[in-house]
C-alpha cells in the first residue's frame, strides 16, 4: 500500500478507536439512565432492552421517598460546599504565603505540608476519629466538615499557580498602600481564577462523594451523606435496581453540573498548575 493510503487508514483507525473508547466510557452512564426509567422486571430482560417500552418517570419520586433522601442530599451539599469554601480560602492563603513571601523555615513548612499527601484518611482513620472525638466533632456537621477543610493538594496547586503571577502586581499594590490581606483578596484571588476553579471542582466532587469519613464520624441517620444513603438503600433492597439507578442519577447531577460549569477552568487549571515541581 502507498504511504498516503497507509496514513489515511491509520487516521480512520484512530477515529474508530476514539469512538469505540467513547462508547466504553459512556456505556455505564447510558445504562444507568435507561434503567432508571424501566420497570423493575424490565431491568434484566432478555433479549436486552436498551430502552424501556414506556419511560417510568415515577421511579424517581418512588426512589427518593425511600429513606431520607432529601436529608442525605442536603447533608452532602452542606459538606461539599463547606469543605470547598474552606479549601478555597485556606489553600489559596497558604499557597500565597508559601510562594510570594520569605520567612524562616518556609521550605520546611512547604515540605511538611506536602508530606501530608502521604496521609490519606484511610491510613490515619482510627486516630483521626479519636481526635475528632476529643474536639466534640462526632455526630454533628462540624465533624463532617472541619477535619476535611484543608488539603495539601490544594495548597500545592495554589502555590504552583500563584508562584507564576508577576511580583510587580503585588509590589504595585503594596506601594499604593494596600494592606497585605487586601492584596491577597483583591489582587491575588482575582488573578488565579483558573486554579481556584480547578480546586473548586475537585474538592466539590471529592466531598459530595465523602463516604468513609461520614461512615465513621456520623452514625445518625439525619447526618448521612448521599453516598451512605445510596449504599444503605442498596443494602436494604438490592433487587430494586430501577429505583437505585434513579437515585444514583439524581445524586450524579450536582457533580456533573459543577463539572460542566467549571470544566474549562478545570482542564486549564491542571495544565497551568505546572505538574513539574
Amino acid at each position: 500500500m502507498s504511504r498516503k493510503g497507509l496514513l489515511r487508514w491509520g487516521g480512520r483507525l484512530t477515529t474508530a478507536l476514539t469512538v469505540a473508547g467513547l462508547g466504553l466510557v459512556l456505556l455505564p452512564y447510558f445504562w444507568m439512565l435507561s434503567s432508571s426509567v424501566k420497570t423493575g422486571s424490565e431491568v434484566f430482560d432478555l433479549p436486552i432492552k436498551w430502552l424501556p417500552e414506556a419511560a417510568q418517570w415515577g421511579n424517581y419520586p418512588d426512589a427518593l421517598s425511600r429513606g431520607k433522601f432529601p436529608t442525605y442530599f442536603f447533608n452532602s451539599a452542606v459538606v461539599a460546599f463547606a469543605v470547598m469554601a474552606g479549601n478555597l480560602v485556606f489553600c489559596s492563603m497558604a499557597g500565597y504565603g508559601l510562594s510570594k513571601f520569605r520567612f524562616p523555615w518556609r521550605e520546611a513548612c512547604f515540605r511538611l505540608i506536602l508530606s501530608t499527601m502521604m496521609l490519606p484518611i484511610e491510613i490515619i482513620l482510627v486516630p483521626t476519629f479519636l481526635v475528632a472525638r476529643e474536639f466534640g466533632l462526632v455526630n454533628n456537621y462540624g465533624g463532617l466538615i472541619v477535619p476535611l477543610a484543608v488539603d495539601a493538594f490544594g495548597i500545592f496547586l495554589m502555590r504552583q499557580y500563584i508562584k507564576d503571577l508577576p511580583d510587580s502586581l503585588i509590589e504595585a499594590a503594596r506601594l499604593d498602600g494596600c494592606g497585605e490581606f487586601g492584596i491577597f483578596w483583591r489582587i491575588i484571588l482575582p488573578n488565579c481564577k483558573p486554579a481556584l476553579g480547578a480546586l473548586a471542582l475537585l474538592t466539590f466532587r471529592d466531598n459530595w462523594d465523602q463516604f468513609l469519613w461520614p461512615l465513621i464520624v456520623a452514625s445518625k441517620d439525619t447526618l448521612k451523606t448521599f453516598p451512605l444513603g445510596l449504599a444503605q438503600m442498596e443494602g436494604i433492597d438490592s433487587a430494586a435496581y430501577h429505583e437505585i439507578m434513579a437515585a444514583a442519577v439524581v445524586g450524579m447531577i450536582p457533580t456533573a453540573l459543577v463539572f460542566l460549569l467549571f470544566q474549562r477552568a478545570f482542564v486549564r487549571g491542571i495544565a497551568l498548575s505546572g505538574l513539574k515541581e
Binding site: L26, P28, P227, L230, A231
Partner: peptide, 20 residues
C-alpha cells in the same frame, strides 16, 4: 464526553457497576 466521568461520584460508579 471523555472527561465527563471525572465528575462522577464514586458511589454512583460503584452502584452502576454492581448492577452491571
Amino acid at each position: 464526553a471523555y472527561f465527563l466521568p471525572i465528575a462522577m461520584s464514586q458511589i454512583v460508579v460503584a452502584m452502576v457497576w454492581k448492577f452491571m
